[in-house]
Computed example of a mutant assay.
Amino acid sequence: MNRIERYLGGVVLSHSLLVMLVLMVIFSFFEFMNQVGKLTDSYTLGLGAFYTLLKVPVYSYEVFPIVLLIGTLMGLGSLANQSELTVLRVTGWSIKRILWAVLKTAFLMWLVMAIIGEFVAPKSEAYAKKMRAEALNQSFSIGSSNGLWVKDDYQYIHVGRVISSQDLRNIEIYDLKDGKVSGLIQAKQAHYDGVWTFKKVKYINLKAVQPSEQMPKYYDYATVHYDEMTRSFPLKPEDLTNLDIETRYLSGWDLYHYVEFLQENDLDASSYLLSFWRKVATPLVVLAMIAVVFPLIFGSMRQVSVGQRIFLGVLIGMGFHLINQLIGNVSVVYQLPIVLAAIAPSIALLLFSWYWLRRVD
């Protein structure tokens, strides 16, 4: 970057950080007030404040596109009000060149937020839920009624209740052989300590018996009881933890992993697939958010108040977010192409901005 590009980038960065700070204070305040209403003897005020602090990376990643939109609109708007953009245009800087200079900073900011979204926010969200659940003596939501089903080529597994990521109750494992059930393992509980250990186990071995060709086949069974036994289990504690986190909070790698897992088990993976492709499409969202600012700034160089710019940025950002959510949910419900639903709103906004910008330039 040359000096002018660094100056433009610094203006966008400073205003975006200011917007992020204000939004995080607002979100944190409401989150903390929400946690205050849940306080108990074990879930103290300090834990509620710590839970709120753990939610900050999650919120910052979620609102980043809107923050970037408002920050860029405020930053470039202040330069427009001071006629600095006019001076740049007179010295030979085209709108496209200014756009490219701002995009460099925007994508550097996105890179930082992508790292937060991939590595910090999922762990922070998982730990926050685990900490609060333990303090309130809650179990995982997936273990509330129907339990959890898992399937692979060799077994069906039903977990009656997930107490925590390392403690399971009422487990049934149906062994398969040639596509048929060959045995059943019933365990009262399972605990993870490097490996899964099942306790109070009853093993029922099924065997097909046909005394002669003239007589029908029947099944005989033998039952064996064990106090403890170890056995391979397809889910790890971190998998069980992630299953209780909303799809939009998972990292891209976890989303990809769960899409494969659900598809292998012939389960609906649409919501996970939509969240995965939304993460992939985030750079396109960043580009669209920056692009829509330029016709707004260069299309009207008269004095506009900061409040008007903030209102306009919030209006555009929230409108885009609502349309994006609507199209995504409709695609999941009606089984429309997920990839198209994830990127179509960004492409539409980008094309609209490009057309508008051409009319202004």
Rank of each mutant, 00 (worst) to 15 (best):
Q325S: 15
I98D: 03
Y221R: 14
Y192I: 08
L73K: 02
M215H: 11
N2I: 11
T44K: 10
A281L: 06
K236A: 14
I163M: 13
L243P: 00
Y249S: 12
T105D: 05
V19T: 10
G252P: 00
L13Y: 07
K180F: 02
S16L: 05
H257C: 00
Q210H: 08
S144W: 05
N324A: 08
K177H: 07
N34F: 06
S212R: 12
L336E: 10
T223C: 05
T105L: 02
V22A: 15
T230E: 15
K199C: 01
F311H: 10
P57Y: 14
Y203E: 15
K279G: 10
L336M: 10
D254T: 13
K200C: 00
R97H: 03
V360Q: 08
Q263M: 12
R359S: 04
G183V: 06
D254K: 13
R278E: 14
M24F: 06
Q263D: 13
E5T: 12
K177A: 10
I4W: 01
D361E: 12
V181N: 05
V159K: 08
K55P: 00
L336A: 14
S300D: 15
F233C: 12
T40C: 06
S16Y: 04
G317H: 09
D193R: 09
E5F: 05
M229F: 11
L111C: 07
L326K: 08
S60H: 01
I95R: 03
Y226T: 07
L326V: 05
V332L: 14
R161I: 04
Y174W: 09
F311R: 12
V280N: 08
G9H: 13
I142S: 12
K55I: 01
S165C: 01
Y249L: 08
F140C: 03
L23P: 00
R302I: 05
L45I: 10
R97M: 06
Y154T: 12
L85T: 01
L69H: 03
T52W: 07
Y218N: 12
T105M: 10
V209Y: 14
L103I: 02
R302K: 11
V87M: 12
V90L: 05
G117W: 06
E264V: 01
N137P: 00
S270K: 13
R132G: 03
Y258H: 11
L85F: 01
S141W: 13
S139N: 12
T241L: 14
D167Y: 13
V87N: 07
F198K: 06
R309T: 02
V159D: 14
F276R: 14
V63C: 04
Y174R: 09
K188P: 00
L85E: 01
I327D: 09
I95A: 02
S78H: 02
L296K: 06
A106V: 01
R231D: 06
I4Y: 04
L274F: 05
Y61L: 03
H321Y: 14
K202T: 08
P345Q: 14
Q166K: 15
L99D: 01
V120S: 06
L47S: 11
N324P: 00
I290F: 10
M318E: 09
E134G: 02
R248E: 06
M113Q: 00
A114S: 07
I297T: 09
L21Q: 03
V209P: 00
V56Q: 10
K177Y: 07
I4A: 08
M229C: 11
N2T: 07
S165H: 13
V259K: 11
T241G: 07
G117E: 11
F107N: 04
L148I: 11
M74K: 02
A80F: 01
A49T: 07
F27Y: 15
L136N: 08
Q210C: 05
